[in-house]
Structures are given as C-alpha cells and as structure tokens.
Computed example of a mutant assay.
Amino acid sequence: MFFRITAFILLAAYAFWLSYRRFQKSPAFNRTKAGRLSLDAYAVWAGRRLASIFASGGRPAFEAADRRLALIYPDRTLRWVVIGLAGSFAYLAASGLVFAVFTTRGMFGIPLLLHVVAGGLFAACLAAFAILRAKDNVSGPESFVIDRFTLRKFPRSLPPELLRPVLFWVFVAAGLALAVTALGSMVRFFSFDAQAGMIDVHRYSALAATVAAMGFFDSVFLAGDR
C-alpha cells in the first residue's frame, strides 16, 4: 500500500511539475498574470497539446518525433538502440506500475510473458546505450560550483550540461538494478525471503528509472538541443 501511494503521488506530481514548467515558457502563460498559478489556462494549454498529438491519427506528431530523434541521434545504429530502449521501457513501466499500483495481484498471463520479453530487450538496449553514450555523460561544466545557494534552488539551478548526465546515470543504475533483481528473483540460488526482497527493490528501481526517464525526456527530447 505504501508503494502504491508513493508511486502514484510522485509520478503525478512530477509529471505536473514538468508540464507546468513547459507551460510557463509558452505564449499562453504570458497572457496570464505573471507569477500566478493559473490552472485554467494550464488546462486549456495541456488539452490543446494532447489534441495536437492525436490530430490526423497522430501522424504529424509521429513525423515530428522522428525528425527530432534523427536530430538528437544522427547515428542510425544509436537511433535504433534508443527506439528499442524507449519502446521496451515504456511497456515495462506501463505494465509493471499498473499492476503494482492499481491491483493487489501480481502480474500474470500474457502481460507477464511480454514483460519478460521486453525486459530482455531493455537490458540489451540499456547496455548498448550506456556504452555508446557514456563518454558524453561523464562530466559537467568546470565552472559549476555547488554551494548553499545552488542547493536551495536544486534542481532548477543545475545547468543542462550537469542535469542530463545525472539523469542519464540514475537511469542506467536503476535499469541495472531492474535487470539484476529480475534475474535474481527467478533463480533458485536465493532463498524465498531474498527473492521477496528483490521484488521490492525491483519496484523502487522501476520507480526511480521512470522518474529519471521522464526528466531525461523533458530535458533532452523536448529541449531545443541535446
């Protein structure tokens, strides 16, 4: 029960925070009173954004996403790795969190079978993505200094050159924990109590990976540059 409440509140609040920050940078926010929380204007803006995604069967949004992906990752091999990673993780997060948050029964049947298959694809793509992109996510700007003022404004004070590597490595670490705990909970080498503990670690690792993926998507894919 604690995990369900924590996961639901955290994901909902973080999604709202990310989308509202993007709303504040839009022309719609400039037409509201500066510095005030305008939920009505935000709801209208969010509704129009969602409607534009599904307009004409979603084809314009798909083409825009394809162009953006090609711009961020020009290498075709890396682009396919990212597609495999994003697609497999999207299903893993959706199926895993839906069963963990909204049901009292563990995953079973075809969703579980697809979850295992997607997990293998995710592990392979995560390893390839980490190897191909690790060099570009190992350091931040040399002039960045952490002080009390910076910590008070965390994470808005972090420049993109530092925020994105942090999100990258959090996602990689959480993804590694997901793979290890998934395998560990299925082998007979560990006791039942150890396997049950791995399932709990697996759930919280999935939550951490989802939060990092949301932040990485917002700061990289939706940003104007890398």
Score class of each variant (00 low, 15 high):
L178W: 03
T150V: 12
S157K: 02
V170L: 13
Y204L: 12
V180T: 01
P155D: 04
L167W: 02
R148P: 09
R152K: 13
V145H: 13
L207E: 01
L176G: 13
V138N: 13
V201K: 08
A208G: 03
T181I: 02
R133Y: 11
F192I: 14
P141W: 02
S185C: 08
L167M: 11
A134N: 09
V166G: 00
S139Q: 14
V166H: 00
A174T: 01
F149V: 10
D200P: 07
A174V: 01
A179T: 15
V170D: 01
A174K: 01
P141K: 05
F168S: 00
F171Q: 14
H202Q: 07
P159G: 09
L207N: 01
K135M: 04
A208N: 03
P159E: 07
S205M: 05
L183F: 11
R203T: 04
L167P: 04
S205A: 15
F168T: 00
F189K: 09
L167C: 06
S191T: 13
E142V: 09
T150P: 06
V145S: 10
L178G: 06
F144Y: 09
R148N: 14
R164T: 08
F168P: 00
R188A: 15
S143F: 10
W169D: 04
T181Q: 01
P165D: 06
E161Q: 14
P160M: 05
L183S: 11
P159C: 07
G197A: 05
F192L: 14
F189E: 12
A134H: 11
P141G: 08
R188W: 14
S139Y: 11
S143Y: 11
D200V: 13
Y204C: 06
Y204Q: 07
R203I: 04
N137T: 00
S143V: 09
L183Q: 09
H202M: 08
L176W: 03
L207P: 00
T181S: 14
E142Q: 09
G184L: 05
F171K: 11
S139A: 15
I146N: 01
K135E: 02
D136V: 08
D147L: 09
W169N: 08
M198I: 00
A177Y: 04
Q195M: 15
A194W: 09
T181G: 00
S185R: 15
H202K: 07
I146V: 15
P141Y: 03
G197L: 03
A194E: 14
L178T: 05
L183T: 11
A182C: 05
I199E: 08
V145P: 07
L162F: 00
S191K: 06
T181P: 00
S139C: 10
S143T: 11
K135L: 04
R133P: 03
A194R: 11
F149K: 10
G140H: 03
L176H: 01
L167Y: 01
V170P: 01
P165C: 06
S139V: 12
L132D: 10
S205I: 02
R133K: 15
A134V: 10
G184H: 05
T181C: 02
V201Y: 13
W169Q: 05
S157P: 00
S139N: 13
S143G: 09
N137W: 02
A134L: 12
A173H: 04
F144I: 04
A182T: 06
L178R: 07
